[in-house]
Each structure stands twice: as structure tokens, then as C-alpha cells.
Design a protein around this nucleic acid. Structure first.
Lengths: 232, 232
DNA sequence: CCTCTTGCTGTACGATCGTTCAACAAGGGC
DNA sequence: GCCCTTGTTGAACGATCGTACAGCAAGAGG
């Protein structure tokens, strides 16, 4: 008992490490408690630190929240890119890998959606969130557009494509890569949203199937327009 | 000046009228201030009443919020139904009317999305919101499914439809009305979401066009499967 | 082992939150 | 014109919010 039990009351961490821990605690709190979890006290408790520490590493709460938003964005995109890279070189396999990664954990998680939705709710009134969104959402769209471009015949890009009015009965209109990416993004986001809000309504495999149907239809139209059979 | 200027300091309202006014004030506050607008003081100021009145007409704040969620749901569905009714009897015209109503004001409004998103953020942690969602979302899905059913040939409904594994290259698989409705819902929601988050990326007419393309493709497949030419 | 830097703690502060409640007064019924 | 019902007010309460800041102590450098 000579030694006074030198158990340190806390352990110092390098700023980057601590910042990362705080960011992850923020996301965990959002998962657990929704928007109510976005409080300095809740987050610092989750991270196991005192209330004052957050303002030592971040100028204010909004900056921490924006950093957390940036983190989940980056995580999502990195996950998708990894899945694609694992799939090899075949454009079809890469697209399929992307879809399957999109419609399975950890992307397809009701808790995760709850987190995203809180950020979207902040979007309109937080310039910080808006900036992060602009910076990262573009990456996601580009990723998707790249996958589509691989898949479609390398036809002349329809630059400045003005859509002809009333496309009702013209199934062989030239494929607009921009619109195609927008549509696929919408389908992905919409299915993701639906599944998270009510997981019982359909199975993830069915969502993949719906997307592949959309893409197959796209490839068919593109091939017809190009007059070739480039796509299998 | 004999009369002491009998200007009443407030005007009484029948409870249903006042309740409705408070509900609309809640939505207005959400539009204006996002989640921060969901405070008793902000809402009562918007409605022009005192802080105590809300708890006189609603047992607590959560009930008011749930009532507001129910209100915007009902409003949306009523708007769509009205647009459809105005379109007459032709299934194609009705579907088109629906799409155009969906992708124009007041549905397609960035402020409106901000309101929805806040409610979705509450969804996971509020039993009240969950109940309202269940009760009203079903109406929306049924509306959409009805429109689709009108449009597709009256083929035998694929009950208990088990999706065949790996539908990769079978474009003439029987059309599953359930999956079709799910896909169209996702496309609608996704495009709506995208447009509201970044209105510059595409025009509402392009969204309508994307949806009509999806539906046309569906009709084509259904016709092929039925072996008829029922749909023009 | 002492020193110095700095990551970290925890109290304090003012603002704002949702809710309660006693008192007020608007306005219809007689 | 008075009464009575009840819609409405607004002060007060305790809890919790984000931030500031003075001081503690961990742990590397000498």
C-alpha cells in the first residue's frame, strides 16, 4: 500500500484521435436517440469525456455535427468503392457489386437512415451542412455515373441534351447519361428510404432486381440507339 | 370618449378551429426554422396565441406534432386525388395527371421537404409518429397501386409471387404489381428528394419523363407477358 | 525527479425548453 | 345587463441546453 495507486483519472489523446472519437460518438448518439441525441452532454457522455472537451476540439457544436456528416458520407462512398474494386473489371459485375453493397448492411440499416434524416433536416438551415453536402454528394453522383458510363456503349455523349417534348411513344430515344444517372440515383435512394422506413415490405434482393431491371432497360435502349450489340 | 374602447384582447375560437390553426402554425414554423421551429413558444407566437394555449388543446407537444404530420399527409393525398379526378377516366391521363401534380407545387417544394424530413427524423423514436405514418402511408401506396392496376392489363394477379432467382436476362417475366408499385414509389420519392435537395440538377418535366419511361416499360412487359396488345 | 506544455475537467452562467396553474375575460344564454 | 361557461393568458417552475473559463494533471522532454 506504499504506492498511492497511480490510476490516472483520464488519458490524453492526440487531437486527431480525440476528434475522431467525438465524431463517432456523435453518430452513435444520433442512432440511439435521434435528434435529441445531438446534445453536448449526451455526446460527451457517450465518448466518455467531460462536457468541456468538445469545445476544446471543435469551435462549436455545429462544426462537430458537420464533421460527423462528412464522416458518414465518406464512409459510405468508401464502402461502395471498395465493393466495386473487389468485383474486378467487368462493368456488369462492378454494377452488381455496387447494388448489392448498397442494399445490404451497413448501408441498408434503419438506424443509419435515422442518422441521415436528421442531417437532411438540418440542411436547409445550416450553411456548414450545405457545404459538406455539396462537397460529398458530387462524389457519389460521379461514382454512379462512372458505373453507368462503363456499362453503356461509348456512344457520342449527348452534350447539352435538350429533351424532346412528349417522349411518350419513342422508346428508342438516345440515352441521356445525365438523366439516366439521376433516375438511378432516385431509384436507389427511394428504395433505400422505403426499406428503412418499413423493412417488411420487400427484401433487399428485390430492390437489387428492380435496379437491374432499370439498368437492363437502359442498356437495351442505348444499344438500339447505337445500332450495335455492344452490351451483352 | 365615453366608451372605454371595448377592444377585446383576444377572440375565442371553437376548439376545432383553434386546433387547426395551431397545426398550421406548427407546419409554418417547421418550414421557417426547421427542427428548431418545433418549440411551444415559436409555434404559439406564429399562431398569435399565448404559450399556455397549446396545452389546453393538446395534451402535450408530441400530440400536436403528430397531428401536424397527419395533416400534411392528408393534404398531400387529397391533392393527388383531386388532380386524378380532374383528369377524367383514361388511365393514362390519370397517371399523367398524378405525375404532373407530384412534380409541381405545392408538392415539389424544398420547404415542404424540409418539413417532411423533420418528421422522418422523429419517426424512429416517437410511437405517435409511427402510428400516423402507418395509417396514412398505406393510403398513398394504395392510390399509386390503383393507378398502376388501371394501366396494366387485367392479367391474373401473381399472388404469392415468389421472385425467380437471378432474373438477369429474362425481360418477359410476369409483371409483379406489388414490386412495380414499390419501384414506382421509390422513383417518385427519390426524384422528389433529389429535386428538393438540389433544384438545379433537373427540371420537373424531366422527372415526369423518367417516370413515364418506367411505366411505359412496365406496360410493355405486361403486354408481352399477357400476349395481348391491350395497352396502346 | 523536476518542469512545462496542453489535453482535459467540471463548475458556472444565461438562455430556452415543456409544462403547470391560478386568474382573467370573452361572449352566448337568460 | 348579469351570470356562467370555458377559451385564454402569462408568470412561474425545474430541467436542460451550449458555451466560457479557471484550474487540474497527464505525460513527454531534459
Amino acid at each position: 500500500m506504499a504506492r498511492p495507486a497511480p490510476k490516472p483519472r483520464f488519458a490524453r489523446q492526440p487531437p486527431p484521435v480525440r476528434r475522431q472519437a467525438l465524431i463517432e460518438a456523435t453518430i452513435e448518439c444520433l442512432k440511439r436517440y435521434g435528434h435529441d441525441g445531438l446534445s453536448i452532454r449526451t455526446i460527451s457522455a457517450q465518448a466518455g469525456v467531460s462536457v468541456g472537451l468538445i469545445n476544446h476540439h471543435f469551435p462549436n457544436k455545429n462544426e462537430l455535427v458537420a464533421a460527423a456528416y462528412r464522416h458518414i458520407n465518406a464512409l459510405l462512398i468508401a464502402g461502395m468503392q471498395a465493393a466495386i474494386a473487389r468485383a474486378g473489371k467487368s462493368p456488369r459485375a462492378r454494377m452488381r457489386a455496387f447494388l448489392e453493397a448498397w442494399f445490404s448492411a451497413p448501408s441498408l440499416d434503419a438506424d443509419a437512415l435515422a442518422v441521415w434524416v436528421v442531417f437532411w433536416g438540418l440542411y436547409r438551415h445550416s450553411r456548414l451542412i450545405q457545404r459538406v453536402h455539396r462537397e460529398t454528394y458530387q462524389d457519389y453522383v460521379n461514382l454512379l455515373r462512372g458505373l453507368l458510363a462503363e456499362l453503356l456503349p461509348p456512344a457520342r455523349a449527348p452534350r447539352n441534351a435538350r429533351v424532346r417534348g412528349g417522349v411518350r411513344g419513342t422508346p428508342s430515344a438516345p440515352v441521356d447519361l445525365r438523366l439516366a444517372a439521376i433516375g438511378l440515383t432516385a431509384l436507389l435512394d427511394g428504395l433505400w428510404l422505403e426499406w428503412c422506413l418499413e423493412p417488411g415490405r420487400f427484401r433487399p434482393a428485390e430492390a437489387v432486381e428492380l435496379c437491374e431491371g432499370w439498368i437492363a432497360q437502359l442498356v437495351r435502349r442505348a444499344s438500339a440507339a447505337a445500332g450495335t450489340n455492344a452490351a451483352v
